[in-house]
Design a protein around this nucleic acid. Sequence first.
DNA 1: GTCCATTCCTGCAAGCATAAAGTATTTTGC
DNA 2: GCAAAATACTTTATGCTTGCAGGAATGGAC
Lengths: 150, 150
Amino acid sequence: MEKDKTRPESTLDLRVWIRLLDCAKMIEKRLRRNFEDQFGTTLPRFDIMATLDRAREGMRMGELSRALLVSNGNVTAIVRQLLDQGLVNSQPDPEDRRSAIVSLTPKGCDQFRVLAEAHHGWVREALADFSEENQQQLLALLTQLKSSIR
Amino acid sequence: MEKDKTRPESTLDLRVWIRLLDCAKMIEKRLRRNFEDQFGTTLPRFDIMATLDRAREGMRMGELSRALLVSNGNVTAIVRQLLDQGLVNSQPDPEDRRSAIVSLTPKGCDQFRVLAEAHHGWVREALADFSEENQQQLLALLTQLKSSIR
DNA sequence: GTCCATTCCTGCAAGCATAAAGTATTTTGC
DNA sequence: GCAAAATACTTTATGCTTGCAGGAATGGAC
């Protein structure tokens, strides 16, 4: 009924990619909606806070953009919002005046704890029907895939 | 050095989700850039054309937005661009005057052939270092994951 | 037939994302 | 020393995406 029978291998990579994208979009959409509905915030803001939480001594803007796989100008805009809300702190790098070092404020740290717990709960719930064994296999395959993408 | 040692299972789902998102973003970013650089078009426009290509008799706007997992207003804007370029056709549904039926024009069909071939080539190249056996396992797992997301 | 809820689509405002151009600073080459 | 290249970041223009408000058409309840 499909052309899979005639040349199944020729579309395997395409099907992998489409399914990967579908899964990511479905989960991401739910997370974004939950962040908006329950906390009035967004996934990108959470991503930045999560990255900063793992670097308590702070990070430079460029490090943030590379860690998050987003553009430089994008980080500028989102960090400014977090600054306005008093969730992060920005101070000039004493060793390089071009750079600013960004870090979570205590208030930002507290709020991140709450967000992170809710976020983990949403992910756990989304994957609840996907067995732990499957998750382990999937994680291993995705790790391999990530390092082989060129 | 990480807390993975104390409770590795408690973050498994989180790690699966983060890695899934990373892989999707890496590939999507390359595809978007290729579409822009080589054809001056975008991934969302291609997605709509690809969906319409599989429904030669046309689709309604709502069907498109559901198939693509995007919002209704979003489809409106992108379809209008394709209309302006003469790549798609829009005519009122004779059975329900609220609906418009959208389909590819011959010109849109021709252009899609070219885009689709290039797109497939990019995906194939991105996954070239990921073995066929791994791809099959990954596809199976993702298929299962997609149906178990709730 | 007449409301009324629902459905389908189209603006519209706000947020995220990119690329490219611009500013300031540091580093390099000489 | 100092001009040129490289780096860190911001700004700007453009495009995608969402949610919501609004208009038009449909379908029931009565």
